[in-house]
Design a binder for these strands. Structure first.
Length: 262
DNA sequence: ATGGTGGGTTACCCA
């Protein structure tokens, strides 16, 4: 099973890029963030023409998330407001018995701002929600893949200059601790199970030639429950996509799982 | 410390 996550920074600006990428990459499920489109204008028809079905929730100008899949989604949940943030930042659905989330974590803006505290509260509320959903029904927990733009670089090897970035937005101790709490509860950074090198990033600021100089952050993640993580077979960031004309500021992150005997 | 770039029902916007 191939899962992918991509902050697309306007789906309408990049319909041809998404169609081309899907056809070349063939993910089973792609989570998109920052679709920046109302539901009536989501390009579901163009995706359906290449064999992908879509579920989505969005709004004008900001935010918006979607799940694009080969097999139709079941038990779709549009999950907001979360922690009192009334923005479409979370959607999930079940594919092959796995609940897959596309999540757009709040940016936080500045560690001194109220938006930063709201971000931390949102992450903790997300943790409460996903584990509660996994336990529904009382039997064995539903396997899960929580993927999206987390807006947090979890470790020093995930930022281009740990000393410079320490304490700045996306790399504060508080944000790292919030992700650590997700991992302590059983989620695993599947990417890092198979790809341990430093200097692998998923986002580069549009400004100051940051991409050209490879000054970025790894803030887009695929966190899975341990049962699924144990089946991780590969992971990569599709940096070529960020090189193209008019790219999103994020590159797609792809993680493969062998679920054949699951 | 600032601003650079780029998205979008172009805003004292947000990333």
């Amino acid at each position: 099973m191939r899962l992918a996550t991509w902050n697309i920074n306007s789906i309408r600006m990049r319909v041809p890029a998404v169609l081309d990428w899907l056809q070349r990459t063939q993910p089973d499920v792609l989570g998109l963030q920052e679709t920046k489109v109302t539901d009536d204008l989501f390009p579901g028809d163009a995706l359906a023409e290449i064999g992908y079905s879509s579920v989505f929730v969005g709004g004008k100008t900001y935010n918006g998330v979607a799940l694009i899949s080969k097999e139709p989604a079941t038990d779709v949940r549009i999950e907001y407001p979360l922690a009192d943030i009334p923005e479409p930042r979370l959607i999930s659905a079940v594919y092959g018995g796995i609940r897959v989330y596309s999540a757009y974590f709040p940016n936080g803006r500045d560690p001194e701002s109220e938006h930063f505290q709201t971000k931390l509260a949102w992450i903790d509320a997300l943790g409460q929600l996903v584990f509660a959903e996994a336990q529904e029904g009382g039997g064995s927990p539903t396997p899960m893949a929580l993927m999206g733009d987390f807006n947090v670089a979890p470790e020093p090897r995930d930022v281009y200059n740990p000393e410079l970035m320490e304490g700045r937005i996306h790399f504060t101790a508080e944000e790292r601790a919030a992700l650590e709490r997700l991992r302590e509860r059983g989620l695993v950074d599947a990417f890092r199970l198979v790809n341990e090198e430093p200097g692998i990033f998923s986002w580069w600021d549009y400004r100051q030639g940051m991409f050209r100089r490879n000054l970025g952050l790894r803030i887009d993640h695929v966190y899975t429950t341990a049962d699924l993580a144990a089946r991780t077979t590969g992971a990569y960031v599709d940096k070529d996509e960020r090189r193209k004309p008019s790219p999103s500021d994020h590159a797609p992150v792809v993680v493969d799982f062998d679920v054949s005997a699951a």
